[in-house]
Design a protein around this nucleic acid. Structure first.
Lengths: 206, 206
DNA sequence: TCATTTACGGTACGGACCGTACCCTAAGTG
DNA sequence: CACTTAGGGTACGGTCCGTACCGTAAATGA
């Protein structure tokens, strides 16, 4: 399973081209990413695993980072939106999902990619979870239901407000290098920050 | 100013040792950091600029990252704590300071270092602004005064709550690769999230 | 004062990768 | 069945890390 080129060694060596080859490269790159992380994803190794060579890769992607981002996109999955019936439960569920994601190997890869992009927004934009509104969508959905139930204020239906909780959690990973945030932290973020923020609040003075 | 070894070329070449040499190396590394960023801070270049060689460096730091962190500490300065007389003014002032910091070359260096540490908490802890409570201190001070004035709720005097604003701003830098966050964003963070959060709030149901 | 130990400086090297170049050949194309 | 396009094999230059070795200046102490 590791290191086996996709080409059958002895069989009729039909030489892949175009899309077929591209998919093989992406699969190989994704495998390398999950096995060794972005730092360990070497162009030579990807080429070897895909049963091709560096030419075919550099003909398609300008550099290692671009390949890494493309490969990561194959690995990222969409988040299921919880519906526990009350806001707090949904919030904790979303936070736990994010916690699992960021503490998984996938999370480490994503952090490395973001770091390697070094603020190049045209590259960052290619990462699914950076697409801003894409990341905000589940939160807005959950909040929308809470607003309908009267649990949350309509003013909270604002991307920056809605995503506060997950941004705080992400900060835990970036600053502390924590492997996994303990559940206390999630509860604290929810109870001390997020829920007070989005619940119906009195109009504030001056 | 660039590339000049600290040793006078022709003069009596008194060979530096111990602390004197260590300081010279750190100065050279800090200069390289500001000139070329962390990615451009090469061990060879640091050694050349310090007028020494790689041995002297590797005898003191185990690798490039450790040297980078040590050098960065020399560059980081402490934040002045604003006192405008009202919470909103202080918050915006602190946010603007953070904005300047993160968008400066120093901010890029810090991001690269955090990224290179890749979650190694023993390294991250060496960075001044990661020391958690150190970063929270100005916010707690400003909030403390606001609480005394009756502008903020005492419950806000909690590191995780107090630092929410700057965490959100930092997120702007990490996710978007924005050079500088426009002032609108700071105002939005303050008015939409932070101030509603820390102002006196009614005890929440359930 | 002089032998001994310690720490620097010079230099070379192995090793890992990146990204590029060349050349041959299989796969598509008309 | 030419002809063009895209893969595959391979080699190479270049950069940088981290280590090793060896001669020598600086500290140490008898």
């Amino acid at each position: 399973m590791a290191g086996d080129p996709m080409r059958r060694p002895g069989a009729g060596q039909t030489r892949r081209r175009g899309a077929a080859l591209e998919e093989a490269i992406l699969r190989a790159a994704a495998d390398e990413l999950t096995e060794s992380g972005y730092g360990g994803m070497t162009i030579d190794k990807v080429a070897a695993r895909a049963g091709t060579n560096k030419n075919a890769i550099y003909r398609r992607w300008p550099n290692r980072l671009a390949l890494g981002i493309a490969a990561y996109r194959q690995l990222s999955t969409t988040v299921p939106i919880p519906d526990t019936g009350e806001l707090r439960g949904d919030v904790l569920e979303l936070l736990r999902g994010a916690n699992r994601h960021w503490s998984s190997p996938l999370g480490a890869i994503l952090r490395d990619l973001v770091a390697a992009a070094g603020g190049a927004s045209e590259l960052l934009a290619q990462l699914p979870e950076q697409s801003g509104d894409a990341a905000a969508a589940p939160w807005l959905t959950v909040l929308g239901r809470a607003v309908a139930r009267g649990e949350a204020s309509p003013e909270a239906l604002h991307p920056r407000v809605a995503t506060v909780a997950v941004v705080l959690l992400r900060n835990e990973f970036v600053m502390r290098g924590a492997p996994t945030a303990p559940d206390d932290v999630l509860v604290e973020i929810a109870d001390e920050v997020y829920l007070p923020l989005v619940r119906k609040r009195a109009t504030t003075p001056g």
